[in-house]
Design a protein around this nucleic acid. Structure first.
Lengths: 240, 240
DNA sequence: CCTTGCGATGAATCCATAT
DNA sequence: GATATGGATTCATCGCAAG
């Protein structure tokens, strides 16, 4: 139930960690997705993912402008380093959207992990799209460092259906619901340590604290680092 | 509300069809998945996907023994030919499991189509797996032949949650629920024609008939061809 | 305190226009 | 000609203000 939050770049941070010191990676990297055109990637995240008249609500986040080759290469680099700091059999859980899903499964395996599945996060009421299927899901790509123990409780026994945090209450544009993250971090035994390289608003940290798992987070942006820190500091009093 | 069922090999059948004669492809190819090891692919489907004591329940189906490269190449061949027989803007809908999902998105694009999304089919009660996330979803990879019309109704406005057909009532081992297929074929305007190259038990044909879409199916196995034919023939009387 | 109504929103997508 | 920008579109939901 302790946590540590680091302000800085992810790869540099991992390299400071000793071997086999964490029990899982649960992280939500910037997808570098969100559009058919190059301009959709190169514009600011606040403009890319939001209506024009709402463009000023959330601070921009960086690292969201790679093409597919670059995304694969970048993920491979930090996943390879994460491999070293994970314990044998530890799970790796990566968020992605439909566009980057295949690249993410490649990256997981390029990093040396065994790919074990894809679990959809279903949003109950996606934005409609005329004449087509709505895109109402993001995806969790997961695997492990080598063989996994096949004891322990079962997970994801029912479909994951969670609304995204409401815009008036969320801190980060792409923040995930804490209820979903609580389901996910329960794959780590109680007291285990979860690493998140792209902490953002710190939702994964909150999930860990609420579920009794230790949390090690890393965030590049000073603004989000401060927001995540504040969020986690405020948390124990909520439980009181 | 008419249907045509062909007994024979898929690629040879497509080649007999004229250009731009169908409004959608909705099909469930043999995944060639179902195992981590080579032996898992080369064994009989009836043994591969079923418990030993149930091994004689369903007839074998063929074409389920390709590795990933072979699966990509094979899908690319028939998808390229399907491109020709589809009308401009027509949707393509392919079932896949998590293991073949990335290969399927590659194949769709190798066939010349625009990839537009991934929609999960969520099973309400997946088989639990100790210490891991259950694999409770299959996936619909979809796209279109070029630009799509952006009129028409919206689809998939809520997550797809459907139980697989009960084993006492299903004909094919990997049969999809008709309710799910009805949701899917509604993306074709009423009266449009849906092509299915791997008809199996004919569930997609039943969905088309119930939704007032025309159906053109193709099945290689004499046994399943007869079963699908019987299923569709029996259907009009059910509507009364 | 409860109900009603209005407005804003969404890891979106497409096309027309501008650079 | 290729890329970048801006506007319009979909509707169930939630927050908030008004009654």
């Amino acid at each position: 139930m302790s946590y540590y939050l680091h302000h800085g770049e992810a790869l540099a941070f991992i390299r400071t960690l000793p071997d086999a010191c964490v029990d899982a990676l649960v992280t939500d990297p910037p997808y570098s997705s969100g559009g058919q055109y190059k301009g959709d990637r190169t514009s600011k995240t606040s403009a890319k993912y939001q209506r024009n008249d709402a463009g000023k609500r959330f601070p921009d986040f960086s690292g969201d402008s790679r093409d597919q080759r670059g995304y694969l290469a970048w993920c491979t680099v930090w996943l390879s380093e994460v491999y070293r700091v994970l314990r044998e059999g530890a799970p790796v859980v990566l968020f992605t959207d439909w566009r980057q899903l295949p690249t993410t499964t490649d990256a997981l395996q390029c990093g040396g992990f065994t790919w074990r599945g894809v679990v959809p996060w279903n949003k109950p009421h996606p934005r409609p799209s005329k004449g087509r299927f709505a895109q109402g899901s993001e995806f969790v790509v997961w695997g492990s460092k080598g063989a996994m123990a096949d004891d322990g409780p079962c997970h994801a026994l029912t479909p994951w259906i969670f609304s995204p945090p409401h815009f008036t209450r969320k801190i980060h544009l792409t923040e995930k619901p804490v209820e979903l993250l609580r389901e996910i971090v329960r794959i780590v035994p109680p007291g285990g340590t979860v690493l998140d390289l792209f902490t953002g608003s710190g939702a994964t940290g909150e999930a860990c604290i609420r579920e009794g798992r230790d949390f090690v987070g890393c965030e590049l942006s000073a603004e989000y680092y401060a927001l995540a820190k504040e969020r986690l500091e405020r948390l124990p009093s909520l439980d009181g």
